[in-house]
Amino acid sequence: MKNIYLKSIMALALVFTFSSCETESNFEDSEPSISYIAVSNPNFSALEAAATYGGLAGVLSNKNPNHSSGDYTVFAPNNDAFARLGLNENNLGVLQQAFLTNTLLYHTSNGNIMGSSLTDGASFGSAIGVNRRIIQRGSDTYINGSKILATDINASNGTVHVIDKVMIATGGDIVQSAIALSTAKVFKQPELTFLVEAVIYADLAGALTASDGSPSFTVFAPTDQAFKDLGTALGLTFTKPEDIRQLPKQVVATVLLNHVIANGGKFTSELNAGTLSPLGGDPLTLGAYNNGTLNVGGVGNGEPANMFIPDVQATNGVIHVIDKVLLPNL
């Protein structure tokens, strides 16, 4: 597998755009740089485009000035990883540039992190200061919720590991993360606007805001369309976020708490089929783990919800954006 992904460092080129005129004379090493190797693999065309759009220039063509080894480590998502989010090299403009830049930096570390160090429970910092953790699930190794497909691709200025999902960290707590989506700081099209309005209406913002010693949660966050569909099912019309206020505040609070589990914040790689007990409402049922996602259903749902954007790391938990509102018995 290492040979298959040897040139896949293109992932790196994307993380920090490369200079097309780079030559290996920059280094005394016989190996090419991360960027130079990366550019030749079409399986990382989305990553290359992301680095260009993200405005990251030339960094991984050179030695790392911020580490004594002169090296970087990059966890590089391939094209299939971007496709999971509906993204490719042609439509990255749906994302805000600053968010995309920080997302790429989140995949990068100072120094050489070798595959032998990627053991269950290990934690590694990123270029934006947010740690990522290694999780062993059966014979597979994950960083957060992303499976590591290949390790130890050597370059003159570091190491690349290939992953199957784009990692996302907001840098904020759960409420701040939802607000960032709702105010178009992530996608240029606002998302989670109904959820943010519902949290404010139900007076739950304080409970989900990080503070010293605050618990970490797993949160299933319904999309705007999920709330609109709920309105239709209830015989109501939800066209704008404030329409959620047609429902009694206590009902909204119960429904929202049915989406929050105080279990320390779990990535998909740490979840298994079975039941979860939310802060309010009734037990949720997780389906089988399948290619990095699980569906989840409430007792009041006819069909389970699918994960739209899994494994979003917040400072006080993990958010999984889903396509249905999880209903308890009301």
Rank of each mutant, 00 (worst) to 15 (best):
R132T: 13
D173Y: 00
L326C: 00
T209W: 06
V39D: 07
N316M: 13
E242P: 00
L236C: 08
L56H: 05
D212F: 15
A150L: 03
A288H: 06
A49S: 04
H67P: 04
D120S: 10
S156Y: 08
D282P: 08
I174E: 05
L236V: 10
G121C: 05
A262R: 12
P283A: 11
G158Y: 12
Q136A: 08
N88G: 03
M10E: 14
N131W: 04
E242W: 02
T254G: 12
G287D: 13
H161F: 08
S30Q: 09
G171P: 02
G86F: 02
G86W: 00
K240L: 11
M307S: 01
V321S: 05
G280R: 01
V251I: 15
K228H: 09
L14R: 13
P32N: 03
S20I: 11
A127L: 15
F308K: 14
L181N: 10
E191Q: 13
A202E: 00
L47Y: 06
V196Q: 08
L195D: 03
T315K: 00
N329G: 14
D311E: 10
G302I: 11
A13V: 01
I34D: 04
Y72T: 01
L95Y: 03
I322C: 06
S117A: 12
I37A: 13
G54V: 00
F194W: 04
Q176S: 14
T159S: 08
T254S: 15
I244P: 10
L95F: 05
I179K: 05
K185C: 01
E31M: 14
D282K: 08
G121A: 06
N131C: 10
T275R: 14
T275S: 15
D80T: 15
S25M: 12
N291P: 06
L256A: 00
A178E: 06
